[in-house]
């Protein structure tokens, strides 16, 4: 269900399964070595097991990305800008 998508403006969009709390302090911690990431906020986190290696550079170049949550009807419920931080 989830995907990363880059549009023509170089914006990076990360799509997730529903159930995540959208908070203003949301950030994506990317571990380049393990090719994984974790979307974190003060009281919740969501682990992404695989981040395609080709995405590392655009993620670094953007530093912020749009996180979108949708339900099973493919309807966008929530969107939020999150900060991208590289760890590890």
């Amino acid at each position: 269900m989830g995907c990363f998508l880059l549009n023509e403006f170089g914006e990076v969009l990360l799509e997730l399964k529903s159930g995540l709390r959208f908070c203003p302090d949301m950030r994506l911690e990317v571990n380049e070595e393990t090719q994984s990431a974790e979307l974190k906020s003060a009281d919740s986190s969501f682990k992404i097991d695989f981040v395609h290696p080709e995405l590392m550079l655009p993620l670094k170049q953007n530093r912020y990305l749009f996180v979108v949550e949708r339900n099973n009807q493919f309807y966008a419920l929530n969107t939020q800008l999150a900060k991208v931080v590289f760890v590890g």
Binding site: F4, H52, L55
Partner: peptide, 13 residues
């Protein structure tokens, strides 16, 4: 993207 190509990535290997 500057050359008009769009690429979509999944988080599933």
């Amino acid at each position: 993207f500057l050359t008009n190509k769009v690429k979509v990535f999944a988080i599933n290997k």
